[in-house]
Design a protein around this nucleic acid. Structure first.
Length: 825
RNA sequence: GCCCUGGUGGCGGAAUCGGUAGACGCGUUGGACUUAAAAUCCAAUUGGGUGUAUAACUCAGUGCCAGUUCAAGUCUGGCCCAGGGCACCA
């Protein structure tokens, strides 16, 4: 065995062996329990960044650990390879998005292999390949048949720079998630997936996910935004037969309504406007249209509005109140109309104050009644000025008032969600074509399944601006109607890439299936994913869409489970100098350089070492250096002992004290490391424990001269255990060392070491002695001593006596085998 | 404004149930080895104080203020700060 560590050479050597042997291929039929470990698959942007390295290393260590613990592990990888960057690159360089993508995949594949990741490459999936997107299209058609995909004209988010529409989930603070440009509203006819049908179950089933962090679950719950209230209908005084319905969560405040607001885009607004008010209303609406979403939704903007001239009648008390339009009412939520109660809603209060609209208190705290002159009263209280409901608590009144509305026919109980349907069409080339055609006679026609895939055309001009490159194809658009055989036009929109990524994890169970997206038996065998690892940025987007897909496909009978990801680990970001690594800041670290200078094992060790996986990780060059030194230290420990180590060692108890202590340290390490991995994958403390074990072996060795037979058995046990423990992280070093020491098979086929509970603790205990809760002495004691004996031992201590002399002992607390606290006065 | 997460040495962080605060590492300082350097190894490293200064001892200390307890980084109440999410959602 060579004396010094030479990572570049051994890493290359073993990577080739593993590839040639298909060392990490997963077979479907074994008796072992299954374990599906999955990283969120990458977009092939060009090169791996450190966030990828962190993500894939975490999952790889988990996969390897589970394999050593007897699981049949599925650990695949693939490419989320449709999307705008490829198309933009093509436009800039006159290239083809497909070539650009293929080159990136080839390069990144090489990097993944250099990292020593244990993927089953036979299950690789690539969403931009026809053998994959055929099934994306097929699934779209199944959703269409079920009424879960539909086309409608709606106000949608438009990003001018990306020249496409966006889903609500892709608009962050009124800006495009990808390019940060301000998003506009446009009225367009677009394809939607009916995720709102699943709003309730998507919310409820969050409770079935104890293996997800609360932060993610809360974010999803907020996004779904369930609220319960009432739908109330108000007759319009001036227009017989016309009603304005409003949704409210505060039916208890109906007696306090003093006006009603409709959104500027409200569908009946023109009917509700009197001729005298028409000009002012038109002008107000025109201004509202001009505003960006950001301006419009800013909460610190002064609220504005204009009256329509008409009035509604409050069915509860017969009062009349005016109708206004104001842009603080949102057309997309509820009915687009709001009943305004300035006394008990802060927004209505602001508006009423500005326009001098009346206020009427209907809820009061009896102890501190407020006239609501200075601010709205939004706390619970007792009903006043509310007819038959006076004296009731406002919480009870919500129900009672709604019930009255139900009984008298002007309202109903209503549950409202903020979640909107998922807009999936994109006016771009590089995506899965939406498989429908438009026929003048027959209307929208799905492409027959046997004609799938609808292939992306190649005769495309990528340099066009203002329209999707796909529309420049001479061969794509014109087709025949599958229904009447007459001329028809293909849909030129492609699908949001998030559609492709909403089912890729299912495809891994049966990646090569040419007859179906996946076999039902196989998908039910491997799924749900046991451990999913990825960035928090997908807390809503990908994770919500995937949950929706899984439930929809279950309802289509394609699979039998209802949640795709049993456990979710959201890893923190990789930072450098306290801020996120980015090209624009110039603080990136190139993984290739790290592999070249230190090797993949160092990179893997370091990326796991300093922070727990869920927390942000600050990259430091000194830290990498430290990990490299540690691996050298491990290597030297092994190589300098190579001649003393036998694979078939035997420990014969009792051992001499120093040897017994080393064996104990090994068991303590096995136990600690196993527990840390089981407990939320705390790899940072796992690595501390590697170091402690290595230090312990060095210390032991430092006190020895020539090793006798017992020493050799003990050091064999210690070092071979160390190699196993470190093998999921230092995958190459451990393989090389194992092989050099005479291992017949791969270290990665070994079993995880087990600990003996009796040996996984120190041979004696350190008794902590406190006086009045303060540490005064530590005494080495035999662990068999009883509580009384420990107490006596503590009282004998001279240090304790200094603090107890001349005082009365009030009581003594003994924590068995650990601590004695003497309370004195 | 609402919700979530966090706040521990110079730094990253550790600390099953409330029971030795600061594991492990980075950095720093001193030393050994060397002609020298690198590498390696050894030692010190929360702050203040007493001190025979290489010993030994002592007080304070986990964002702030209270509380519960024999005992609080850990539990309770009230604040402050940082990061993240949502936000005119009626």
């Amino acid at each position: 065995m060579k004396e010094s560590y030479y990572p570049q050479e051994i890493e290359k050597k073993w990577q080739k062996v593993w590839e040639d042997n298909k060392a990490f291929k997963t077979y479907d039929d074994t008796d072992k329990p299954k374990y599906f470990a999955l990283s969120m698959f990458p977009y092939p942007s060009g090169k791996l960044h450190m966030g990828h390295v962190r993500n894939y290393t975490i999952t790889d260590v988990i996969a390897r650990y589970k394999k050593m613990n007897g699981f049949n592990v599925l650990h695949p990888i693939g490419w989320d390879s449709f999307g705008l960057p490829a198309e933009n690159a093509a436009m800039q360089h006159g290239a083809n998005p497909e070539n650009w993508t293929d080159e990136n995949i080839a390069y990144m594949t090489k990097q993944l292999k250099m990292l020593g990741l244990s993927y089953d490459w036979d299950r690789e999936v690539t969403t931009c390949k026809p053998d994959y997107y055929k099934w994306t299209q097929w699934l779209f058609l199944q959703l269409y048949k079920k009424g879960l995909a539909y086309k409608k004209e709606a106000a949608v988010n438009w990003c001018d720079k990306c020249a496409t529409v966006l889903a609500n989930e892709q608009v962050i603070d009124g800006k495009c998630w990808r390019c940060d440009s301000v998003v506009e509203k446009k009225y367009l006819s677009q394809w939607f997936l009916k995720i709102t049908d699943y709003a309730e179950v998507l919310l409820e089933d969050l409770d079935k996910l104890p293996g997800w962090g609360d932060n993610v679950k809360i974010m999803q719950a907020n996004w779904i935004g369930k609220s319960q209230g009432a739908l109330l209908k108000f007759k319009v005084k001036e227009i017989p037969g016309m009603e304005v319905p409003v949704y409210t969560t505060r039916p208890d405040t109906v007696y306090g309504i003093t006006y009603l607001v409709v959104a500027p885009e409200y569908k009946d607004i023109e009917k509700l406007t009197t001729p005298e008010n028409k000009a002012a209303v038109e002008e107000y609406r025109a201004n509202a249209r001009k505003m960006t979403e950001i301006e419009r939704l800013s909460t610190d903007r002064v609220k504005t509005g204009v009256p329509l001239g008409t009035h509604c009648i409050n069915p509860f008390n017969g009062e009349e109140f005016p109708l206004w339009t104001a842009d603080y009412a949102l057309v997309e939520y509820g009915t687009g109309a709001v009943m305004a109660v300035p006394t008990h809603d802060t927004r209505d209060f602001d508006f009423a104050k500005k326009y001098n609209l009346p206020k009427k208190v209907v809820i009061e705290n009896p102890e501190t009644p407020s006239d609501c002159k200075d601010e709205a009263y939004t706390e619970p209280g007792v009903m006043v000025n509310s007819g038959e409901f006076n004296g009731m608590s406002n919480e009870d009144a919500k129900k009672a008032i709604t019930q009255k509305a139900v009984d008298e026919g002007f309202g109903e109980f209503k549950t409202q969600y903020r979640l909107r349907d998922w807009l999936v069409s994109r006016q771009r080339y590089w995506g899965a074509p939406i498989p429908v055609v438009y026929c003048e006679k027959c209307g929208i026609q799905p492409v027959p399944e046997e004609q799938l895939p609808v292939l992306l055309p190649k005769d495309v001009d990528f340099t066009v601006t203002g329209k999707s490159p796909i529309t420049t194809s001479k061969t794509f658009v014109n087709t025949t109607c599958p229904c009447c055989g007459g001329p028809a036009k293909r849909e030129t929109d492609t699908m949001d890439t998030f559609v492709c990524s909403s089912w890729y994890y299912l495809r891994y169970s049966d990646a090569k299936n040419a007859n179906a997206p996946f076999d039902k038996k196989l998908v039910n065998k491997w799924l749900p994913v046991d451990q999913y690892v990825g960035g928090i940025e997908h807390a809503i987007l990908h994770l919500l869409y995937s949950r929706f897909f899984t439930k929809a496909l279950r309802d289509l009978g394609l699979l039998d489970f209802d949640e795709p990801f049993k456990n979710l680990l959201t890893q923190g970001m990789v930072l450098k100098d306290g801020s996120k690594m980015s090209k624009s800041k110039g603080n990136t670290v190139d993984p290739d350089e790290i592999f070249e200078n230190y090797g993949a094992d160092t990179a893997r060790l370091f990326i796991l070492s300093d922070s727990p996986p869920a927390r942000d990780f600050d990259w430091s060059d000194a830290g990498v250096e430290g990990c490299y030194k540690f691996l050298n230290r491990v290597w030297r420990l092994i190589s300098s002992n190579a001649k003393n180590i036998t694979m078939d060692y035997k420990l014969e108890f009792p051992l001499r004290k120093d040897n017994d202590d080393l064996v104990r340290n090994v068991h303590i390490a096995i136990k600690g490391i196993s527990n840390d991995i089981s407990n939320d994958f705390q790899f940072n403390t796992v690595i501390s424990k590697y170091r402690e074990l290595v230090n312990a072996i060095y210390d032991w060795q430092g006190k020895k001269g020539e090793l006798d037979n017992e020493d050799k058995q003990v050091v064999s046990f210690a070092i071979l255990s160390l190699i196993k423990l470190i093998s999921p992280v230092a995958v190459h070093l451990s393989e090389e060392a194992w092989s050099e020491l005479g291992g017949k098979t791969s270290i990665h086929d070994e079993e995880w070491p087990k600990w003996d509970e009796n040996l996984a603790k120190a041979s004696s205990i350190t008794l902590i002695v406190q006086v009045n809760g303060k540490l005064r002495d530590k005494i080495e004691a035999d662990e068999t001593l009883s509580d009384d004996e420990l107490k006596a031992l503590a009282l004998e201590s001279s240090k304790v006596k200094e603090f107890t002399d001349g005082k009365t002992i009030v009581k003594t607390i003994v924590v068995p085998k650990k601590l004695v606290n003497i309370v004195v006065k």
